[in-house]
């Protein structure tokens, strides 16, 4: 239970940092996955899922009134679920656990976007309140702004532990019932990580991004293969 409470607090604070306070990258998947792993006692496991999620959602940015998916909610739920499922299995976060955690919890990022739209509409009530207060107590009108942090905290604080709980329940049961899934899921995890990196490169708004991505990937793969060949000799 204390793990879920810790996840709720971390996810809630990330929900606030993501848009309402500071915006210092602490709610980005790469930081949040690491922090969730630290809070739940498995930094390496949190980091395993954080890296591809960061790249997958590199283009999730809030431009004007357009809302991206709620990448912080998605990352907290996936990382939390993966760590808790790995703990239940006694294996830590492996590639199959990470792949299934993405399948079960990543859609929360889309649900989070819908909820965020509702929060933005709900905040109009704070404006109504401030417009009334400003005639009598301008300081109180200004403070209405801070009340807007409550719902962005609650949204991931409730949904991230809920998503993680589903992952922690379903993933160990599935992998125990069908151990033959482990290798195919590991292959799928590698494919997912590569496509996440490609999605990250394609999300940057530069005409030559695709060419640069493929050139860098090819050069690094050749170097990596050469190093591997050298090691195996």
């Amino acid at each position: 239970m204390s793990s879920y409470l810790a996840l709720a607090v971390v996810a809630g604070l990330a929900g606030v940092e993501r848009k309402g306070v500071l915006q210092a990258m602490l709610s980005r998947p790469i930081a949040l996955g690491t922090i969730v792993g630290l809070a739940l006692g498995d930094v390496t496991g949190g980091l395993l899922v954080a890296v591809p999620l960061e790249l997958l959602w590199l283009g999730a940015v809030n431009l004007g009134a357009a809302l991206p998916v709620h990448e912080a909610l998605g990352a907290a739920a996936v990382a939390g679920g993966a760590v808790l499922a790995g703990e239940a299995l006694g294996t830590g976060v492996t590639m199959p656990v990470a792949a299934l955690a993405v399948v079960t919890s990543a859609p929360l990022a889309v649900l989070g976007r819908t909820a965020e739209r509702a929060i933005e509409r709900a905040n109009e009530r704070l404006v109504d309140r401030a417009e009334v207060l400003v005639a009598t107590d301008p300081a109180a009108a200004a403070r209405a702004n801070v009340r807007g942090l409550a719902l962005p905290f609650l949204l991931p604080a409730v949904l991230a532990p809920a998503g993680a709980a589903v992952t922690a329940l379903v993933v160990p049961a599935l992998l125990r019932a069908a151990p033959s899934l482990a290798t195919p899921l590991s292959i799928a995890w590698v494919a997912f990580a590569v496509i996440a990196a490609a999605a990250g490169a394609f999300s940057v708004r530069a005409a030559r991004a695709g060419k640069v991505f493929f050139a860098a990937a090819t050069a690094a793969a050749v170097v990596g293969a050469a190093v591997l060949a050298g090691v195996s000799r």
């Binding site: 590199l58 990196a197 990250g200 640069v212 793969a221």
Partner: peptide
């Protein structure tokens, strides 16, 4: 932006090399 695309490319290769191992 071009630096980002290049780092993503290197990360993709690192995933594949780790996967091969």
């Amino acid at each position: 932006r071009l630096g980002t695309a290049a780092f993503c490319g290197v990360a993709a290769a690192a995933f594949l090399v780790d996967g091969a191992q």
